Computed example of a mutant assay.
Amino acid sequence: MKKPTILLIEDDELDIISVERSLKKLESEYELHTAYNGIEALKILRDQNNKLIPDVILLDINMPRMNGIEFLQVIREDADLKSLKVFIMTTSSEGNDRTEAEKLGISGYIIKPLNYTENTKRSDSMDAFVQFHLRKILNEESN
């Protein structure tokens, strides 16, 4: 049985750690790959020697070099990648970002806590997302 794969595209190290912690609590088998921006993610997805087609992509919007919306536009135009499940995880509450992402066929849009002074808020929010969304996807993919 193939382990479900997750591609996390995130430039904030604390958010990466938060996602990793939340995933560990699932007690499910999975494979996590991380890219720090859209360009790095495209290199991973297009690497012919190590073809990765993730079951789900967790995508930040605000990143250097290539942001999340630009990344979504590129993969939606690529025949091999256009049907990937993508969840946006962002601090951006800009309605325009959400509208653009939804036009590009995302599976979900999660606003990360804006106040990171309490680390528990961040991990509670991430845990809730992982429990409600990713658990279902990972279970579907592993069956």
Score class of each variant (00 low, 15 high):
8 L>F: 05
9 I>R: 03
9 I>M: 04
10 E>G: 04
11 D>F: 00
12 D>N: 15
12 D>L: 11
12 D>I: 12
13 E>A: 14
13 E>P: 11
17 I>D: 12
18 S>G: 10
20 E>A: 13
22 S>E: 00
23 L>A: 10
23 L>F: 08
27 E>F: 03
30 Y>V: 00
31 E>A: 11
31 E>M: 08
31 E>T: 12
32 L>N: 09
32 L>G: 09
34 T>H: 11
35 A>C: 01
36 Y>A: 05
39 I>S: 14
41 A>T: 04
41 A>I: 01
42 L>I: 02
42 L>N: 00
42 L>G: 02
42 L>S: 04
43 K>L: 06
44 I>P: 02
46 R>K: 15
51 K>N: 10
52 L>S: 09
52 L>K: 09
54 P>L: 05
54 P>H: 08
58 L>A: 07
61 I>H: 01
64 P>C: 08
64 P>H: 08
65 R>T: 02
67 N>H: 07
69 I>T: 12
69 I>L: 11
70 E>N: 13
71 F>V: 06
71 F>C: 08
72 L>A: 11
72 L>N: 13
73 Q>Y: 03
77 E>V: 05
78 D>K: 11
81 L>N: 04
82 K>T: 06
83 S>T: 15
83 S>A: 15
84 L>F: 03
86 V>I: 09
86 V>L: 01
88 I>K: 04
90 T>R: 06
90 T>M: 04
92 S>N: 08
93 S>W: 06
95 G>P: 03
